[in-house]
Amino acid sequence: MLGRRLEIIIAGFGGQGVMVMGQLLAYTAMDAGLHVTWMPSYGPEQRGGTANCTVVISTGDIASPIVARPHVAVAMNTPSFEKFEPRVVPHGVLLVNSTLVPERSHRTDIDVFYVPAVEVAAKLGTEKMANVVMVGALAAATGVLPLKALQAELGHFFEGPKEKLIDPNRRAMRHGFGLIPREDRHGPYFVGVTISG
């Protein structure tokens, strides 16, 4: 049986870390005991154009790992904004990397969050952490997974000599989470699922 599920598309330039953002969500969901699929766009798109990945997280079986109209879209650049903003389902969530995307959505049937991810990441030390800032914002805006669980998962992403990057990234994620105003934050999406941080 299919269960309660959340379908997320994350898109941006190759090199912005969009695949890793999806994998961070996927690993955290798996460790939380949820069902998950991660599907990349592949091929020529990865060479300098836009890259995207689709993550489906569910309490039950996941049928198709490919999603035409996501519940949540993350646009890290303008081409991704143009492609995925119209596709978000009504009552869905759109997160926009407003440092690089000047466009504004005219849709009134979805929640749009403008997150200056690159700017915030740069202030915290390096623009490279913009993807992690955005994951923090996504966690706050959707309630998909607890911030603590995602922060814990970061420990598996940086091993050996890269271990020193764990703490700055955890900090960046917390800052991203904090960018979503308290009243706009979503409660736990998978109610009844116990997820340890």
Binding site: M30, V36, T37, W38, M39, P40, Y42, I62, P65
Partner: peptide, 10 residues
């Protein structure tokens, strides 16, 4: 097919 080859799943 390409979906099963490229996707990640536990």
């Amino acid at each position: 097919d390409g979906v099963l080859g490229q996707m990640m799943e536990p």
